[in-house]
Design a protein around this nucleic acid. Structure first.
Lengths: 212, 212, 212, 212
DNA sequence: AATGAATGAGCCTTCATTCAT
DNA sequence: GATGAATGAAGGCTCATTCAT
């Protein structure tokens, strides 16, 4: 139950109480920066300006700039994984499971477009940085989980016998492709319909790709 | 047939064969920079160091840094489109056409991984810049061509009746997804097999997604 | 009469005839640049863009950037001197002469505010450059003329016996001060009334300053 | 009375007495640059070289290059205003007041020719920049003060009934004109006598211009 | 934990000028 | 006389990072 028994921070007498968590404030500010101008716009000073933290405070919490980006990336990455996993766990049967992978992802993207966009944008930056192994590990684990989920169904002959490196692309490729396109055109005049519009078609595509 | 008899450019008597084409030299240098360190590594000074052009000359040709990136992006984008189109034109029948879209793309990526990677990396930068409309137009035209190619086959009932906004993602999503993953892991320890390995499976996926 | 008998330039067959004079086109373009953004905005490339001349052509005519500014400055300087001199010559008697100095200057400024502003702005630049002696000489000559004009009137006792270094400031100071202020506020919301409004008062001031 | 007992700043034990005031150091350096080569010579690198501040520090305090120039300009502008005001306040009677305006200005210019020259040179730059409104306001306020000071004397009939837009030019025009000329010729061979030489004549001119 | 002044490497960009054609 | 590609010095500005308080 996580009894948060750390000493209650003294509430300044006359000021509004600084909201919950500095760390989270900073991450929120970083996300806002990225939403405005891409990952490159996540700047110490930009973050500072948005959340009121001092430069020193930011460094205290995250060590360096890349630390902010990476922390935010992993937060979001895990949130997304968890969200999809919940849908998958609730699904009954092979086909429902495959469709849940797609719709779980799609629903999460539509619910949090800024976070989704950050995930697409920041992957390259994280890959270039010192936490590459962490990312590789997290990605590997996620793919592994997907492959493992498929395994019994493959053995039962319910899904085709496909190379496991290919599974993520076959199942998630179309929905990711569409979501990415939707996200990048969101504010322009050439906006695509929300992924929700094609929820069924995209789930179909995944199932057709792997069904026996 | 190979003797393209355009007037032979005057070869300077005693100098190195420099005068090829400054503009192209600069773009090549920019691509090399990007291959080394990502789009952010396309630096005026980095380019200058690689191709020997002066700062002023670079600006004379491209206006500013983003101008280089954008010019390179569009060059590559059109090269890729042309390359796929050639394969498509050579294909006989619906299924062969769909497979040609996938394999044409895949072969191009495998043949020029640096250029392909640049296309993935730089898209965001171009979208953020002043040539967004050009990109939107180019992308629209490419999708339009794909949809138009499908049209008669859809009417004949050879392919499913799907929303046209969805076609690019259904057909190209898996192969793009796999190529992107391959490109981003190329040099790491967690490298994926070359897309060529799964040429047939990826073409299958496209055909399964759209066949009636 | 200046019979300009140089060989008539060949008029291009199908093009609009390039207007009179390249040299003057360039100076006009330079003045336009300065009107827009101050003397610093007189840029080879800015001039080129405005008048269509090539970089090389500009250098052919003026040698270097400062050459343009200086040529324009002296053109305007002499034009102004001539204009005031005409008014002075037409005046009858001491007081009329003094007033003519002021109103001649004032009328010229009001008639050509851009040129007047350029004269104020560019003086410093010309002073800093290699034609400083030319400017000093021109200014000296102009002051000399003014002082010489006063001389007989001073000896006759019609005007006060004042040090000659002081005369230009006493006579022209107020009108220059007001014109300068007017020119610098022309486009703002805090614009002053046209100098024409205070033509008489400013002429009065000059006369009061020197009359016996 | 002089012992201002604020807590004595800790003098560093073994170091040079650096910590005076970075901001002021930078402004002093900027003025030195301008004295050497005009406003255009106020260069980030030039300032840095003269005062030892880092680039970042300069930007921390002034935002950008123009910020330095503007800050220096306003500092000097207000210093001058204050200095003249002190003289004006000490004067008894109308004529003495008018003469104090002139001599107060003149004495300030002679005492700090570099600052005075900067004021003349930099006005244009400030007018062109984003702090134009501040300058307009400061100038308005100064003129307003002058006009307000005259008001009772005008009503009493001690000075002529002149348009208030004209007052600054009539009173200060001659002295400003002479000081400007003196400052611009200071180092040349064609130097004018110090304004101090004509202190009385210039004060006379102001009084003649406005006395009833 | 927090603060913010200071640092300096690294970039982008402008501009006068030259020169071969 | 004209043209415009090429040159390179010079300057402005951003940004991650450190550190004393």
């Amino acid at each position: 139950m996580a009894s948060r028994s750390r000493s209650i921070p003294p509430i300044p007498a006359s000021e509004a109480p600084e909201p919950a968590d500095r760390r989270q404030d900073i991450l929120n500010a970083a996300l806002a920066c990225a939403a405005d101008g891409g990952v490159d716009a996540v700047t110490i000073d930009g973050v500072r300006a948005r959340c009121g933290a001092s430069v020193g405070s930011i460094y205290h919490h995250f060590g360096n700039r890349d630390g902010i980006v990476a922390a935010l990336f992993f937060d979001i990455f895990h949130d997304q994984s968890r969200s999809v996993q919940v849908q998958l766990d609730a699904a009954q049967g092979v086909e429902a499971g495959v469709r849940a992978l797609v719709t779980g992802y799609l629903d999460w993207v539509v619910a949090q477009p800024e976070r989704a966009r950050f995930l697409f944008q920041a992957r390259g930056a994280v890959t270039a940085g010192p936490r590459t192994p962490d990312l590789a590990e997290a990605a590997r684990r996620r793919n592994q989980a997907l492959v493992a989920w498929f395994e019994p169904h493959r053995q039962s002959g319910a899904v085709r016998n496909l190379p496991c490196e290919l599974m993520p692309s076959l199942v998630m490729g179309p929905v990711q492709s569409y979501c990415r396109a939707w996200l990048s055109g969101l504010e322009g005049s050439n906006a695509l319909p929300s992924p929700t519009t094609y929820r069924e078609e995209l789930a179909d595509a995944a199932w057709r790709a792997v069904k026996a």
